[in-house]
Design a protein around this nucleic acid. Sequence first.
DNA 1: TTCATAAATCAGAATATATCGATATCTCAA
DNA 2: TTGAGATATCGATATATTCTGATTTATGAA
Lengths: 100, 100
Amino acid sequence: MNIEKTITALNNPTRRNIIGWLKDRSNFPPALPEHADLEGVCVAFIQEKAGLSQSTISNYMGLLKEAGLVSSERHGQFTFYSRNDDAIQAFLSALEKEFL
Amino acid sequence: MNIEKTITALNNPTRRNIIGWLKDRSNFPPALPEHADLEGVCVAFIQEKAGLSQSTISNYMGLLKEAGLVSSERHGQFTFYSRNDDAIQAFLSALEKEFL
DNA sequence: TTCATAAATCAGAATATATCGATATCTCAA
DNA sequence: TTGAGATATCGATATATTCTGATTTATGAA
C-alpha cells in the first residue's frame, strides 16, 4: 500500500468515478455472451461511460492498477479491469491511521 | 465537505504531515507564556518542523484551511492553526461512502 | 510615528498532470 | 498471412502544483 501513489491516483474525479462504477457491474452494458463468466469490465465500456478518449482511459486504468486499486486480466483482445476491494479497504484504513 | 478540494489538499506529503503533527501540540516547541491558553500552533513552528520556506507553509496552511481541515485564529501578529477533527472525520466518512 | 516581527501575497521557474490524436502491439478470424 | 478490433504507448500542448525569494500587510512596542 503506497499511500502517496494511491492518493494521487484518486485525486481525479473521473478516476474516482471509475472506482465507484466498478462496484457494480450493472453500471456498464451487459458483457458479451462469451465473456459472461469473466470478472471485470473492458476498457471500451469504461471509456464510453467516462466520455474521455481511449488513450486517456487506458492511461487512467494503468495509474489505478499501479496504485493497486484495480486488477486486470487479459482475455483475447480484451483487458478486463475489476476493483481490488482489499486494497481500497487498506487504503482507507491507512488514511484513518495517519489522520485520526 | 468538498471532497475534491480535500483530496487535493492532502495529496502532498508535507501537508499530510502537518495534519498529523497537529494531532499533538507536543510535536512543536512550547508556546510562549502569553500564548499558553491559546489553541493551535503558529506558522513559524510549523515552518521550522517542515523545513520549507515561510511562503510555502503559509500557502499550504491556506490550502488546508480552504479545504476545511484546519482553522485559524489570529492573535496579535501570530496566526494559530489547529486541526479540524470533525472535518477530517467527515472526509474519511465521505471517502468510505464513495468507495466502499 | 516608526521599527521590527509574523504572516500573507506576488511573480516566477521547474516539474507534474490532464488530455488528446496518432501510432504500435496483440490477438482473433478469414 | 492479412485485416480488423481492442488496448497500450508515444509525443505534444495546456493547465496545475511545488517551491522560492521579494514584497506587502498587519500589529505590538519603543
